[in-house]
Design a protein around this nucleic acid. Structure first.
Length: 299
DNA sequence: CTTTCGCCCTGAGTGC
DNA sequence: TGCACTCAGGGCGAAA
């Protein structure tokens, strides 16, 4: 459920607490929470303990926190390394007092204890009900544009809120692909950060049927779609993200408000806010698509 | 190469 | 009340 806006809210919340902090202890309570980690180079806890964190970064739905160079294995990782996090469906990164007990709340998979030069001792809890999320220590690699990203993020396209997002490249990808336009929106190699909720919302705003073949969109329509993607992601970010239940929350455990602003997603049978036609839900790619059957026609 | 499919997982909700 | 079943879906790797 956490898509770009939710993940960005988490990154912004994490930043003041972790930037400059030193990891004093790492407890992994459930190994499934670190399935992204490559154990061949050492355990997650061993590699993270003692390291100093820099400012958190994000691309698409991935967050990472670059670390100051490790004095022990400096040569092995020329661009450095980082703690990488993907929240999956139900992952949460929560700021806690250092004395807070992980066993007092459900699904705490990992606890990272920090000492911050100003804020002092604190802890970050990684909670994850469905364990689709994961943490890892990952190597950074330098991209063509000169920025350093974890190896697991390398294959992702930039996200539409990234100033270096390749508008022309994305439009070209749409123009070439015969698959459903929604499939392209969910393909993180074409555009990252968009998930089921914001794909449905952007398609509704642009009046495009989710199963319209991407290459059948006019250039103008495709450009409008990209604009609506940026618009809906930006609005959701300002509202603190979309929360349906207690699953998505910021680092302080608070829900976002954007669920009230959804026009299509999760509104099956309810009137389209523009024309009143009941929103329909159809099965698509093992998930659901919600759209207005009157305004979003398959051509 | 593209596209599809199955798997990972838990708790809320539904139907009988 | 209880039990079986369905659903939510991001990422990834295997299969077609």
């Amino acid at each position: 459920m956490p898509e770009l806006p939710e993940v960005e809210v988490v990154r912004l919340g994490l930043a003041p607490a972790v930037t400059g902090a030193v990891v004093t202890a790492v407890d992994v309570f459930d190994e499934r929470a670190i399935t992204r980690h490559d154990h061949a180079r050492g355990s997650f806890a061993d590699r993270l303990t003692g390291r100093r964190m820099r400012a958190p970064q994000r691309r698409g739905k991935f967050i990472w926190i670059p670390l100051d160079p490790d004095p022990v294995v400096e040569a092995a990782t020329p661009a450095g390394d980082a703690v990488l996090a993907h929240l999956g469906m139900t992952g949460q990164l929560l700021l806690r007092e250092a004395w807070a007990r992980p066993e007092d709340e459900p699904h705490v998979r990992v606890r990272v204890e920090l000492r911050h030069p100003q804020a002092g001792e604190l802890a970050v809890f990684f909670r994850d009900q469905r364990t689709f999320g994961s943490l890892a220590l990952d190597e950074l690699v330098t991209t063509d544009a000169g920025d350093a990203v974890p190896t697991q993020v390398r294959h992702l396209a930039r996200d539409p809120l990234d100033p270096l997002f390749d508008d022309r490249g994305f439009l070209a990808a749409l123009a070439v692909k015969r698959s459903a336009v929604k499939r392209v929106l969910l393909d993180q190699r074409a555009i990252s950060g968009v998930g089921n909720i914001y794909a449905d919302e952007a398609l509704w705003a642009a009046r495009i049927h989710p199963e319209q073949p991407a290459n059948r969109l006019s250039r103008a329509k495709a450009r409008m779609l990209l604009g609506e993607i940026r618009l809906v992601l930006g609005k959701a970010l300002i509202e603190g993200g979309t929360s349906f239940d207690a699953q998505y929350v910021n680092v302080n455990g608070q829900a976002g408000y954007f669920a009230h602003s959804l026009n299509a997603y999760g509104r099956e049978g309810k009137p389209c806010p523009r024309c009143g036609t009941p929103i329909v839900r159809v099965s698509f790619m093992n998930r659901s698509s919600h759209f207005c059957p009157k305004e979003q026609r398959l051509r």
